[in-house]
């Protein structure tokens, strides 16, 4: 068995002294793991960082074997984000969530394409946090649990959508929510009105992540103890922290 594909590194789990079991999100073979000899050596450690794009050649005697990867770097994304705490946290969260939610060896070309575009956005755009929330919506939809934000579930109204039903995953307007508002999940304005050009506030991003998180926990992680990856929780913490200024610490100057 042998194939070649392009993939995004999701994780590299140590195996023995120098090898690692590397999990890639590939374009045509989905989330696929393989053993990489020397992955933890001097050359390999930089290569197999989450978010990097590689060309991968997978070989195994039988299709059901773990197999071995031989990879070459196409694009080093992780190293460019190391000094940017929120974006690095987003990268770690995206890779951890993909690793935790997608079944192995099933192609998800839409998720692959969306993840690649999201990682490009992480590098280049100021609106990257909104892109992470939208990517999570797309991931939920690909997994079969898409939310319907097109109209109010109760009245059919398309204006003034402000909540999402935690049960049905459908939007609810402000008017229809009435006394049930406390039991509904807030729908951030940048999702309710995608045509708005104003950048989303950190609180809206957190609300969007809480919204998708609810449905990930309900539908995807329910059988795994209901726990989201810790990297995603740290990402939310970091976005939340960005809404309140940290006490200033003195900056170290070059000696």
């Amino acid at each position: 068995m042998e194939w070649s594909d392009t993939g995004i590194v999701l994780s590299a789990r140590r195996h023995g002294e120098n090898a690692a079991v590397v999990s890639l999100l590939t374009e045509h073979h989905g989330r696929h793991a393989g053993l990489v000899h020397g992955a933890r050596g001097r050359r390999g450690r930089g290569l197999y960082q989450p978010g990097n794009t590689l060309t991968a050649r997978w070989q195994a005697r039988l299709a059901e074997h773990l197999g071995r990867y031989t990879c070459e770097l196409v694009r080093a994304r992780a190293s460019l984000l190391l000094d940017d705490p929120p974006r690095l946290a987003a990268l770690a969260a995206v890779c951890a969530l993909t690793e935790a939610t997608l079944p192995e060896r099933l192609p998800y070309p839409q998720v692959y394409g969306a993840t690649g575009r999201l990682l490009d956005t992480l590098e280049a755009s100021e609106r990257w946090a909104e892109a992470v929330v939208r990517w999570e919506f797309a991931l939920l939809a690909e997994l079969g649990f898409g939310l319907d934000l097109s109209a109010c579930a109760a009245t059919g109204a398309v204006e003034d959508l402000a909540y999402v039903s935690p049960r049905s995953g459908r939007a609810v307007s402000q008017e229809a929510a009435g006394p049930y508002a406390e039991k509904l999940l807030p729908l951030p304005s940048f999702l309710a009105r995608p045509e708005d050009t104003a950048a989303a506030a950190a609180a809206d991003i957190v609300a969007g992540l809480r919204l998708t998180g609810w449905f990930f926990e309900k539908h995807v992680f329910a059988g795994q103890g209901g726990r989201m990856p810790a990297a995603r929780e740290r990402f939310i913490d970091r976005i939340q922290a960005s809404t309140k200024p940290l006490p200033a610490a003195p900056i170290v100057q070059d000696p």
Partner: peptide, 30 residues
């Protein structure tokens, strides 16, 4: 910490935790 995603994630986390101590925080060059 290492110049890896995990290493720098840990460094950023520590920076947040240590912010209130008021000490200067630096990291190794990359």
């Amino acid at each position: 910490t290492s110049a890896t995603v995990d290493g720098q994630t840990t460094a950023h986390y520590l920076t947040d935790r240590l912010a209130e101590s008021g000490v200067a925080i630096s990291r190794l060059a990359h």
